[in-house]
Measured scan of single mutants.
Amino acid sequence: MTFKLIINGKTLKGETTTEAVDAATAEKVFKQYANDNGLDGEWTYDDATKTFTITE
């Protein structure tokens, strides 16, 4: 399955995708991506669209 991450950061904005077997796996990938890029914010997830959002 394809999951999307929408980034609404103070300095970084955009989106990225990952292929994962489930939402929990995708969340780990996206949280590592956010950590690697210095993002810290509030996370939301929409199961209907398989989309995570981080807002700083």
Rank of each mutant, 00 (worst) to 15 (best):
M1V: 08
M1Y: 06
T2A: 07
T2W: 12
T2Q: 15
F3S: 00
F3G: 00
F3K: 00
F3L: 01
K4C: 04
K4M: 09
K4I: 08
K4D: 02
L5T: 01
L5W: 02
I6A: 05
I6R: 09
I6S: 05
I7Q: 03
I7W: 15
G9V: 15
G9M: 15
G9I: 07
G9S: 12
K10H: 08
K10P: 14
K10F: 13
K10D: 14
T11V: 14
L12I: 14
L12R: 03
L12E: 10
K13Y: 15
K13Q: 13
K13D: 08
K13V: 15
G14E: 08
G14W: 13
G14S: 10
G14Q: 12
E15Y: 07
E15W: 04
E15H: 05
E15T: 06
E15G: 03
T16W: 15
T16E: 07
T17C: 04
T17V: 09
T17K: 14
T17Y: 12
T18G: 03
T18E: 05
T18H: 13
T18Y: 07
T18M: 11
E19W: 11
E19V: 10
E19P: 08
A20K: 03
A20W: 02
A20N: 04
A20S: 13
A20M: 03
V21S: 14
V21F: 09
V21M: 15
V21P: 13
V21N: 15
D22F: 04
D22K: 04
D22E: 07
A23P: 12
A23H: 08
A23M: 07
A23I: 07
A24E: 13
A24Y: 12
T25D: 12
T25C: 05
A26P: 00
A26Y: 00
A26G: 02
A26H: 00
A26N: 00
A26E: 00
A26I: 01
E27A: 12
E27C: 04
E27W: 14
E27T: 06
E27G: 08
E27H: 11
E27S: 09
K28Y: 14
K28S: 13
K28R: 09
K28C: 04
V29T: 09
V29W: 12
V29Q: 09
V29M: 12
V29H: 07
F30H: 01
F30S: 00
K31H: 08
K31E: 09
K31Y: 07
Q32C: 04
Q32K: 12
Q32D: 11
Q32E: 10
Q32W: 09
Q32P: 01
Y33A: 03
Y33T: 03
Y33E: 02
A34Q: 04
N35P: 01
N35K: 12
D36R: 07
D36M: 08
D36K: 08
D36E: 12
N37K: 11
N37Q: 13
N37F: 06
N37G: 04
N37H: 08
N37D: 03
G38N: 14
G38A: 15
G38P: 01
L39D: 02
L39S: 03
L39C: 04
L39H: 06
D40S: 08
D40N: 12
D40C: 04
G41L: 03
G41N: 01
G41D: 02
E42R: 13
E42T: 15
E42Q: 15
E42S: 13
E42Y: 13
W43E: 00
W43L: 13
W43Q: 01
W43H: 01
W43A: 01
T44H: 08
T44N: 07
T44K: 10
T44M: 13
T44I: 11
T44R: 07
T44V: 11
T44C: 04
T44L: 09
T44W: 09
Y45R: 02
Y45S: 01
Y45A: 01
Y45G: 00
D46M: 08
D46W: 03
D47F: 08
D47Q: 11
D47L: 08
D47G: 10
D47R: 10
D47E: 13
A48K: 15
A48S: 12
A48R: 13
A48Q: 09
A48Y: 11
A48E: 14
A48V: 14
A48M: 08
T49N: 15
T49L: 09
T49M: 10
T49H: 15
T49S: 10
T49W: 07
T49Q: 11
T49R: 10
T49I: 15
T49V: 11
K50V: 04
T51K: 04
T51W: 03
T51G: 02
T51R: 04
F52C: 01
F52T: 01
F52P: 00
T53N: 04
T53Q: 07
T53C: 04
I54A: 02
I54V: 12
T55N: 12
T55P: 01
T55H: 08
T55Q: 09
E56C: 04
E56G: 04
